[in-house]
Write a protein that binds this DNA or RNA. Structure first.
Lengths: 325, 325
DNA sequence: CAAGTCAACTACTACGTATTACTAAGACGT
DNA sequence: ACGTCTTAGTAATACGTAGTAGTTGACTTG
């Protein structure tokens, strides 16, 4: 268990000063190509790698970012993939944490991280975010901004789906909403209501307020008998599955009597019977974009161009013209 | 943007030496209660937190662990939750990376991490794992050991499901296998074959070798007509859903003509029509246990008691006695 | 009461890097 | 030939902590 080589060891082997080694490894100029080569050669021979702790102490930069995620309820692996990969390419290490707001606060003024990216559904923590030197980007704000600018909004798929359903002949809608602690659930709910209004169709109501498929099923079972034909817009695929289940248990055929749409394109949705019309979200790109934006903030650069086309409606069997029985 | 307080600042305010502050914060004894109190008071006043980079440089311990995961194909969020939470409680920060074997190698001798926990389906990297001072624990080995010891094995649910199906009257089985790059897929396949043998029932074969539901469907569509009644053991819920889809498209009823079991209890499985018999895995506990084990390795302690009861068969509608038409 | 013991605390230093200020030696213009 | 500029390199230092090796002074003990 010999100790790791240091820049001094490399310097000795290459016959230069430690300063020179440092200059080579930080990519500065003022070093001749020949010397640079000698240093790299020596470093390779010793299998030298800079000690990050020492570097961090000297530069007062940690090179570390934190991603705050709610482990439950969302399919966050792809988001993580995008975020982690992007950060890594930019030279940052990413830690994953799941924290309460208080803990996020503590994180922010610990200076342990250069930036914190929060996918937590909760609103951003207290003002400390302002004072803190740690960059902070919350997806909830992010969501709202996307919503506001429209550039990258939840809007398009919802509108597209509802307009298409109306074209098919649907006039009566129901929204199965997700947990209002999630900005995305709120956005979908609001947009559902706005679109019902704009298209001048009937809304049977907005039911449920969690991500539970059981609840969705129960809400459908509680509907009056004369509500069909009906188009159900669910806030995600689990709710949609529950709604289909409830419809079938009542003897309503899907998509004959009831058309159903979901959101997320869950792994099983394509194989569902009937297969589920849903919204595919490119979570990898979403994660990557969020991270690029955080890094731009840290570096004082301006925000990158918003991504477009991150969401796409996938039409499947669960949507059809209303039955005319 | 004033600089963060250091232990010297705390010492000055408390009227003691920096050494004393350090001793207080590392929890050593030899400090009177009164002094300790004064130091903590001063630290709180300044909102002091030890600089981790400096501490790390001094102790030559980084307090960081890495978790290597394949982002695609598995539901790893709960595993991550268990692992991250456990590590955090033990004072470690966890970074998430998705890497090739070569990159894992680089990670191992970078000394950047005290330990690396790999959920990667690939086999462990080269011998460097032996030489490296960085602790390394791969789930693939882990899997195999669980398999070998039986204490925490994949075995129980597979055997339980098959025995129950035989009790119900099934005599003909089919296994839809997952990607052989995953140790868990291989284990399930092997155990399927062993159990077919042991129970003396017929196996129509082992089909598919990926986690694709489409492939599963096609495999079922390619079966001969006279194969029903049949019991299909799928390596996960996606494959099971594809198999059900294929069965229904051929006009086979599920579970009348074909009983199907999955694995993982995916979010939509309970709402599937028919709802899916599957194996629930407590991934949070699995992640936590894996992490505990890695930390024990790092600290030179003996491995913690293996967890039991991490998997449980959930009986649902997709399994029934074979039809007798 | 002297010697020994112990608790409580401190001065000093090493950890490995990046950076600042500096030097030596050519290159260049007039 | 002289001073100035540029290039290529070096010596010295600070970053903030933890731990080593003391140094007190009070207390015990034979």
């Amino acid at each position: 268990m010999e100790k790791r080589p240091t820049s001094h060891d490399v310097a000795r082997l290459a016959g230069v000063s430690q300063t020179t080694v440092s200059l080579v490894f930080t990519g500065r100029n003022g070093i001749s190509a020949a010397t640079r080569e000698r240093v790299l050669q020596a470093a390779a021979e010793l299998n030298y790698r800079p000690n990050l702790a020492a570097r961090s102490m000297r530069t007062r930069r940690t090179g570390r970012l934190a991603v705050v995620i709610p482990f439950a309820g969302l399919n966050l692996a792809p988001i993580l993939e995008g975020a982690v990969t992007t950060a890594r390419e930019a030279g940052y290490a990413v830690e994953v944490v799941s924290l309460s707001n208080e803990e996020i606060d503590a994180l922010l003024d610990s200076s342990e991280y250069e930036g914190v990216l929060s996918f937590s559904p909760m609103p951003a923590p207290r003002e400390s975010a302002e004072e803190s030197t740690t960059a902070f980007l919350a997806l909830s704000e992010f969501d709202q901004e996307m919503h506001a600018t429209g550039a990258f909004s939840d809007a398009q798929p919802m509108v597209e789906m509802m307009e298409r359903l109306v074209e098919l002949g649907h006039r009566r809608f129901l929204h199965v909403a997700g947990s209002p602690t999630f900005p995305s659930a709120v956005a979908r709910r609001d947009l559902y209501l706005a679109t019902v209004d704009r298209l001048g169709v009937e809304s049977v109501g907005v039911v449920a307020n969690s991500w539970s498929g059981i609840t969705a099923k129960e809400c459908v079972l509680a509907l009056p008998d004369d509500v069909i034909p009906l188009a159900i817009i669910a806030a995600n695929d689990i709710l949609a599955a529950g709604a289909i289940r409830g419809s079938v248990e009542r003897g309503w055929s899907v998509p004959g009597d009831v058309s159903v749409t979901g959101w997320d394109d869950a792994a099983l949705s394509a194989h569902f019977i009937p297969s589920l019309t849903t919204v595919f979200q490119d979570r990898v790109r979403l994660g990557a974009y969020s991270m690029r934006r955080l890094i731009a903030t840290i570096r004082g650069q301006e925000a990158p161009e918003p991504e477009t086309g991150l969401q796409k409606v996938i039409w499947r069997e669960s949507v059809a013209p209303p039955s005319t029985r």
